[in-house]
């Protein structure tokens, strides 16, 4: 099987989507001639031309709103928001317009648009370029949200997002762009709303995403040597949420640890914990635990930035504590 990076998978997904459907257009800051700040879009301007691949001014409200206007009139726009921290700059268009446009018109429109943004800490960008955005957006019915955590998913989720007849926010983890993994020769589409069990286990279920999902797998390796068997679920899709895969895992393990790259209050883990309390309470042998950023923000200094996002050591310790409950 060939190796591919997370970045290359996204580029390929965009190119394949644009070849497959002439209605797909791509725009954002520096995505055309420069090939993107994260170099995710090189070659697309050359292949698809200035009509379909466009640089925008630094105007997130305008081009995210334009994506909506284009989507409801027949295009299938893909807008790159660069850093996910810029989502609040366009928040009105995302939550008041894009999420509600179909609903408040009584179903008159389909809104086939995709917004891509790079999120997450670990690259030294400081506190306004390192946040994760899914928890902000999950409170907004009308949006679909995906968080690819593997190379194959970076391709497959984006292909599905672009073909979806609803707005989809694709949050890529910027530290994972260089992640290289073996992938099948033909990369499949990945459905929205379906979690993946990345590692099967008996003793504890970890629910995680992206970077902290990869770190949970590291922790699971270490814990296996201690005789603790960990099941790791990669949510992949925050909306819709795959509740059944989580509940099925709890039937086996009876213990739940949620690992988030997010602050504690209002973090997406609270929604998973509520699911366990509601539909899974009789499956549990121990309290639900969360490992996350607590009340902290992402800091610039390397040791501080390393400290804020849960690492394999913290995750492993949380599992040990949970098994001892």
């Amino acid at each position: 099987m060939p190796k591919m990076t997370y970045r290359e998978a996204i580029t390929k997904a965009l190119a394949d989507a644009m070849r497959a459907d002439a209605r797909v257009v791509l725009f954002g800051e520096d995505v055309a001639v420069a090939g993107g700040v994260f170099k995710v879009t090189p070659g697309l301007y050359e292949e698809f031309g200035a009509l379909r691949v466009r640089d925008t001014p630094i105007s997130e409200q305008a081009f995210i709103g334009a994506a909506l206007g284009a989507a409801i009139t027949g295009l299938r726009p893909v807008a790159e928001l660069m850093f996910a921290d810029f989502i609040p700059v366009a928040m009105d268009q995302i939550v008041n317009q894009i999420a509600k446009y179909r609903y408040m018109s009584g179903g008159q429109f389909v809104v086939p648009l995709t917004i891509r943004a790079a999120q997450g800490a670990g690259a030294g960008f400081g506190t306004q370029h390192s946040q994760c955005a899914e928890s902000w957006l999950m409170n907004m019915p009308g949006l679909k949200i995906v968080v690819p955590g593997t190379v194959a998913d970076a391709y497959g989720l984006l292909r599905t997002a672009i073909e979806e007849n609803n707005p989809v926010i694709v949050l890529e983890h910027k530290v994972m762009y260089n992640l290289a993994e073996e992938v099948p020769d033909v990369l499949p589409h990945v459905p929205l709303g379906v979690a993946a069990v990345r590692r099967a286990g008996r003793d504890v279920t970890i629910v995680a995403t992206q970077l902290v999902m990869q770190r949970s797998l590291e922790a699971a390796d270490a814990l296996a040597a201690e005789g603790i068997s960990v099941e790791v679920i990669d949510l992949r899709s925050m909306a819709p949420l795959d509740e059944e895969t989580i509940l099925a895992s709890l039937e086996k393990t009876h213990r739940l640890l949620i690992v988030e790259e997010a602050p504690h209050a209002g973090g997406w883990g609270a929604t998973i914990a509520a699911l366990a309390a509601d539909r899974g309470i009789y499956l549990l042998d121990a309290p639900v635990k969360r490992v996350n950023m607590g009340g902290a923000l992402v800091a610039y200094s390397p040791p501080l930035e390393d400290e804020v996002v849960p690492n394999a050591k913290r995750i492993a310790q949380a599992v040990r504590d949970l098994v001892a409950e």
């Binding site: 257009v25 009509l51 379909r52 409200q61 305008a62 081009f63 995210i64 709103g65 334009a66 994506a67 909506l68 206007g69 284009a70 989507a71 409801i72 009139t73 027949g74 295009l75 726009p77 009105d92 268009q93 008041n96 317009q97």
Partner: peptide, 18 residues
């Protein structure tokens, strides 16, 4: 939302142009 309809119209015009 005051002003929000302007970017949306820009998008509709983008469709017309493309």
């Amino acid at each position: 939302i005051v002003g929000a309809q302007l970017p949306i119209a820009v998008g509709a015009a983008l469709t017309a142009q493309v």
